[in-house]
Structure formats: C-alpha cells, structure tokens
Simulated scan of single mutants.
Amino acid sequence: MRLSPLLLEQLETATQQGSRIVIENVLKFRFNSLDDELREIIQPMLSLSSEEFLPLLLQLSREELLARFNSEN
C-alpha cells in the first residue's frame, strides 16, 4: 500500500506535535515549569528521534540541556 504525499505530510506533522508534547511534559515534570529558556530548546530537540531525546531529557541537568541545545542555534 502506498500512502499519498498529503497523508505522509499529515502523519509527519502529527508525529512532530506528539514529540513536542512529550518534550514539554518531561521538561515541566523535571523542572516544575516551562520557562522561556526551556521553550527555546524544544525546536532543536525535535530534530532528534524520541530514542535520542528521551535519554537526554531524563539524564541531563537543566544547565546541560540549555548548553547543549542553545549551542546548536
């Protein structure tokens, strides 16, 4: 079965929105809020797969996350 380009685009958009929600929720849980500094690193994190960003979210400190993903901007 071959998916149409429109359906593939919608699937990709839904996947990105789901990843964004996961990242936001983990950041809120770990750091008790989602301030402007943390919001800025969400977009760069979305370039990673969930297998890549979840361990980083769970293991790195706030400072390490900000340093790693702010340096990519």
Rank of each mutant, 00 (worst) to 15 (best):
I23H: 02
R20W: 07
P44G: 11
L57C: 05
N32R: 13
D36C: 03
R39G: 02
R2C: 05
E9S: 11
P44R: 13
E51R: 08
L60R: 08
L65W: 01
N25E: 12
Q59T: 10
Q17G: 04
E37R: 09
L11A: 10
S71H: 06
P55N: 05
L11T: 08
K28D: 02
I41S: 04
Q17F: 09
S19V: 08
D36P: 01
A67F: 05
Q16S: 02
F31Q: 06
L8G: 06
L8D: 07
E24Q: 14
S47P: 07
I21V: 12
E9C: 03
M45G: 10
L54Q: 09
R20N: 09
E64K: 13
I21K: 14
M1Y: 10
A67S: 11
I23L: 06
T13K: 15
V22K: 04
T15L: 10
I42V: 15
R2H: 11
L8W: 03
R39M: 09
Q17R: 15
V26Q: 04
R30A: 05
E37M: 04
L46Q: 08
K28R: 15
S71G: 07
L38R: 07
G18P: 00
L6T: 14
L3V: 15
L65H: 02
A14K: 15
L60T: 02
Q10L: 14
L6F: 12
E24D: 06
R68I: 08
I23Q: 03
R62I: 05
L48Y: 04
I21G: 00
L7Q: 12
L38V: 11
A14V: 04
V26K: 03
F31L: 10
N70T: 01
G18A: 15
T15S: 09
P55F: 09
S47D: 12
N32W: 09
S49P: 00
S47Q: 11
L65S: 00
E40Q: 13
V22Y: 01
I21T: 11
L7P: 01
S4E: 10
S47L: 11
P44D: 11
Q10S: 06
S71K: 12
L56P: 00
L56M: 14
E37Y: 05
V26S: 02
G18V: 04
L7G: 04
E51S: 10
L8A: 12
G18Q: 14
L46S: 06
Q16P: 05
I41E: 08
I41T: 03
S49M: 09
S19P: 00
L65C: 01
T13C: 00
S71W: 03
A14G: 15
P5M: 15
V26T: 10
S49R: 11
R68F: 00
P5W: 15
T15V: 07
R2Y: 10
N73V: 07
S71M: 00
P5K: 15
V22H: 01
S47M: 14
N25R: 13
K28I: 14
V26C: 03
N32H: 15
E72M: 10
S61P: 02
Q17Y: 07
A14F: 10
N32V: 12
Q16V: 08
P55I: 12
S61M: 00
L3Q: 10
S61H: 02
P55L: 07
L65A: 07
E63H: 06
I21F: 04
R68E: 06
A67N: 08
I23S: 05
L66T: 01
F31Y: 13
N73D: 01
L7M: 13
